[in-house]
Amino acid sequence: MSDETPTGVHRIGQVIRLRPEHAEEYLKLHEAVWPEVLDMITACNIRNYSIFRHGDLLFSYFEYVGRDFDADMRKMAADPATQRWWKLTDPCQQRLEGTPDGEQWLEIPEVFHHD
């Protein structure tokens, strides 16, 4: 996504592989996401955030309603609670081929949308 996002909603889909040996742990963590992590997601202008599972693939969808996605993602990455959360969830995931350096999830292009 470009650094500057126009006013409005930007829909983002991402994928990553779930390590089968960590699937139960990952699902358990997401049954009770820490409130401070959820608060940071909201503070970073992310709305309507979902993660779906198909076998060993995870698909996330969210809507970004801010003006500067990169700045909001830096804010999230600097948050101590989010860092602790990622230390638990990242080992459960395996980055897919083509995922940019410094990213965990691979953003995928939208091919169709209808309101």
Results as ranks from 00 to 15, higher is better:
F59K: 05
F59A: 12
S60K: 00
S60E: 15
Y61V: 09
Y61W: 11
Y61I: 11
F62G: 04
F62Q: 10
E63M: 06
E63D: 15
Y64G: 01
V65L: 03
V65D: 10
V65W: 02
V65C: 10
G66E: 08
G66Y: 02
R67M: 01
R67V: 07
D68Y: 07
D68N: 11
D68F: 09
D68Q: 04
F69V: 11
F69S: 09
F69N: 07
D70I: 03
A71C: 01
D72F: 02
D72A: 02
M73Y: 07
R74V: 10
R74C: 04
R74I: 02
R74W: 00
K75H: 09
K75T: 14
K75Y: 03
M76V: 08
A77R: 14
A77T: 04
A78T: 02
D79Y: 03
D79I: 04
P80W: 13
P80N: 09
P80I: 11
P80L: 08
A81F: 09
A81N: 11
A81Y: 10
T82Q: 04
T82G: 01
T82K: 11
Q83W: 06
Q83I: 14
Q83Y: 08
Q83K: 15
R84H: 14
R84K: 15
R84D: 15
R84F: 09
W85N: 02
W85L: 06
W85D: 06
K87T: 12
K87G: 11
L88I: 04
L88A: 15
L88D: 05
D90H: 13
D90F: 09
D90N: 14
D90C: 12
D90Y: 09
P91W: 13
P91F: 14
P91M: 10
C92A: 11
C92E: 12
Q93W: 11
Q93F: 14
Q93M: 15
Q93A: 12
Q94D: 13
Q94Y: 05
R95H: 00
R95G: 04
R95N: 00
R95F: 02
R95K: 11
L96E: 08
L96Q: 04
L96D: 03
L96Y: 03
L96I: 14
L96V: 11
E97P: 06
E97Y: 07
E97I: 12
G98N: 10
G98E: 09
G98C: 08
T99A: 09
T99F: 10
T99R: 05
T99E: 06
P100G: 07
P100T: 09
D101H: 06
D101Q: 13
D101T: 12
D101I: 05
G102I: 07
G102F: 09
G102C: 04
Q104Y: 01
Q104I: 12
Q104H: 11
W105H: 08
W105K: 08
L106F: 05
L106R: 14
E107M: 10
E107R: 12
E107L: 06
I108V: 15
I108Y: 06
I108S: 06
P109I: 06
E110W: 12
E110H: 07
V111Q: 14
